[in-house]
């Protein structure tokens, strides 16, 4: 864990959260805490309920058909579970940004980068007709675009996925959000670009004191960026701790197997670890 961040304010706190979608429970008894300047990685297999947690943290539970049947979701001083959609919308405008694997295809094909950033900056520049242009350029520069002017008037289809990812992150800066929720945003990128985007996120976390909740199904990426790790299985948290603890001494065989699935550069292995049904059953026995 990043020791220096212990004193930072808590941005997101979930306590004994239970989430339902239609008639089935997707998350049970989940508690977590995320501080400013910290990256918390949620990992597990598909269907473990990580995306539901991410959507609830991003004030999207109602919009995505999730029902909070127990517990609380505190973003700063507000309980998202108790707020109506109208207030949740204001929170999404000003405090939290949700990026997911469809974020790039979901960019309006008719709008330019300048318009995206203007829209994102509107909340901070309320009362002004136009957000300050230098701020827009500065944010683009901060996300690693050396010539920000050259992309300002481009449409999404004119830009490479890597650049578009940087533009999306620039929009986060433009909003001035406290919390960034990333749900498999980099899953569709190639390894090199993925690495660059992750490095950028770490840099912004440190420089802008951003809290990042990061959902990934790729355990190998956790080592590069996460301060804390939370392992989920069938809607429950089965292990939680600092990155070092989880990597060095996982308490569950399941976690060990999951981390064994990670692909690491420079490591020579004939085959990846397999998560056996016995491992899964052991976890089920423990948590139920």
């Amino acid at each position: 864990m990043n020791e220096g961040k212990l004193e930072s304010p808590v941005i997101l706190r979930m306590q004994q959260l239970e989430l339902w979608r239609a008639r089935s429970v997707v998350v049970r008894d989940l508690s977590l805490q995320l501080r400013a300047g910290q990256i918390l990685a949620l990992t597990g297999e598909y269907g473990a309920g990580m995306s539901a947690v991410a959507q609830a943290a991003a004030a999207l539970a109602v919009r995505r058909g999730l029902r909070v049947s127990g517990g609380s979701i505190w973003l700063d001083a507000e309980d998202l579970a108790a707020l109506p959609e109208k207030k949740l919308r204001v929170i999404r405008q000003q405090q939290v940004v949700y990026l997911h694997r469809q974020s790039i295809p979901w960019l309006n094909p008719l709008r330019t980068v300048r318009e995206f950033l203007q829209e994102a900056g509107d909340w901070q520049a309320r009362g002004q007709l136009e957000p300050a242009a230098p701020n827009m350029l500065q944010n683009l520069y901060q996300v690693g675009l050396a010539e920000p002017e050259s992309v300002l008037d481009r449409l999404p289809r004119d830009l490479q996925p890597e650049v578009l990812n940087r533009v999306l992150i620039a929009m986060v800066l433009q909003v001035g959000a406290k919390l960034l929720v990333i749900d498999e945003m980099t899953a569709l990128l190639d390894a090199t670009v993925q690495q660059q985007i992750l490095e950028l996120l770490v840099e912004l976390k440190n420089r802008r004191n951003l809290a990042i909740l990061w959902v990934t199904h790729q355990p190998g990426l956790i080592e590069a960026v996460a301060d804390e790790v939370l392992v989920m299985f069938e809607g429950r948290v089965i292990e939680q701790g600092s990155l070092a603890d989880i990597l060095a001494a996982p308490k569950q065989a399941y976690t060990q197997a999951l981390m064994g699935c990670a692909v690491r550069l420079g490591e020579e292995r004939l085959r990846l670890t397999e998560i056996s049904e016995a491992d899964r059953q052991t976890v089920r026995d423990i948590v139920t």
């Binding site: 991003a58 999207l60 919009r63 919308r89 204001v90 929170i91 999404r92 405008q93 000003q94 940004v97 949700y98 469809q102 974020s103 295809p105 979901w106 960019l107 309006n108 094909p109 008719l110 709008r111 318009e115 829209e119 994102a120 909340w123």
Partner: peptide
């Protein structure tokens, strides 16, 4: 369209989505 859903996620009001996204398209 996905980008209209994205606008909803980002917290735009119905009026803003209408004027900025639907009408130009």
């Amino acid at each position: 369209q996905g980008w209209v859903e994205a606008a909803r996620i980002s917290g735009l009001t119905r009026g803003q989505i209408f004027m900025r996204h639907l009408v130009p398209a």
